[in-house]
């Protein structure tokens, strides 16, 4: 099970480290990452994340990320399971 966590935040020194660190420390692996800049201050970081064990919840992770100073919004969307078509 993986999810995309889309984080809008204000750029500041160490902000990206802080976000990624929070995700890792709360028991998730970062599997992918893209970041886009929107104007002078705000930025968007999209992290693909996978829990390191079954007890980890994306909702709880989102709340942990949301309370980081400078974060303006967090959205988590679980990815649909990958389906391989039978040949």
């Amino acid at each position: 099970m993986t999810a995309d966590i889309v984080i809008d935040f204000t750029r500041s020194e160490g902000a990206v480290l802080r976000l990624i660190g929070q995700v890792e420390r709360r028991g998730f692996e970062v599997t992918s990452m893209t970041m886009a800049e929107h104007g002078a201050g705000p930025a968007r970081l999209t992290l693909g994340v996978a829990p390191r064990d079954a007890s980890r919840s994306f909702d709880t992770l989102s709340r942990h990320v949301a309370k980081i100073h400078g974060v303006t919004s967090v959205r988590a969307a679980e990815r649909a399971p990958f389906m391989e078509r039978a040949s």
Partner: peptide
């Protein structure tokens, strides 16, 4: 700054002395 990232609510490196008043005000509020 890096060492303490996981154990602070927030942190600042002040690079411009003119920022000191606002950084301290924000730090106390946080």
């Amino acid at each position: 700054f890096g060492i303490t990232l996981p154990i602070v609510k927030h942190s600042f490196v002040v690079r411009d002395p003119a920022d000191i008043p606002s950084v301290f005000a924000e730090a106390f509020a946080l």
